[in-house]
Design a protein around this nucleic acid. Structure first.
Lengths: 130, 130
DNA sequence: CTGTATCCGTCACGATACTG
DNA sequence: CAGTATCGTGACGGATACAG
């Protein structure tokens, strides 16, 4: 009651924003999607994942995987062999996240024509304003 | 077959990424949420919206609203009075977008304790590694 | 009241080189 | 093969000043 500067001050709200940002970033969804395609229980090696996602740098792949691992979305398994090999796999939490995310993706896909039409109309209106 | 550099090259995939980024940005969801709270058909003035979202600059409010308007998510109605007044309201498309977005927000909210526990465990493991 | 234009700091992202 | 360290760049977001 003291005073609420703005909605983001609320811890829960911040957490939701944070997760939304995560989903909205450039690679998270692509990585989750790639891992989700794998048969349940089977992991994916680092470079294998890198190839499947495509166009991602080692840096970003490592960073994004670390974040996902920290949140418990992916599990990391190290095999101390020579050469070393590491397997990544979605956890239950990771799989469950994929559900609402894919729903959003489906929404986008379904409304794509509409959105494109809207943009064309908007941009067109600007041009003819002269 | 010619060659697929990376998934983002596909127009549809790019469009989905784009929408995801939009949702993941700092203000879009908060604005949509504020507009959604309004009774159907009733608009919201610029500064009224600014107050309700809280902590947003005019700059960002204008930019985000423009983007949403261009995509047909919000409708902008200008009343040529003195002083001028403008009303913003969600369109049908905007309302329908709110559904999957809120589903994602609900997922986050539901799994918040789990995620926090995971982070604590992860960070804790790092500390004791020494 | 409702915008637009400008400047500036921050940080996400990418490329590269290096290590175990 | 997997990962870290370092550096550069550019987009994004915020503050401010100005205009209709």
């Amino acid at each position: 009651m003291t005073d609420t500067p703005h909605p983001h001050a609320d811890p829960d709200c911040r957490a939701v924003s944070e997760l939304l940002s995560r989903v909205g970033d450039k690679w998270t969804v692509l990585i989750v999607k790639a891992l989700e395609a794998k048969p349940r229980g089977r992991g994916c090696r680092f470079n294998e994942l890198k190839r499947e996602v495509g166009g991602i740098s080692q840096q970003m792949l490592t960073r994004t995987l670390r974040t996902l691992e920290r949140d418990g979305m992916v599990a990391r398994t190290v095999h101390h062999t020579v050469p070393p090999s590491v397997e990544y796999a979605l956890t239950d939490l990771g799989h469950s996240l994929a559900v609402p995310v894919m729903a959003l993706a489906d929404w986008t896909f379904a409304h794509l024509p509409q959105i494109h039409a809207n943009r064309a109309a908007y941009d067109g209106a600007l041009g003819e304003a002269a």
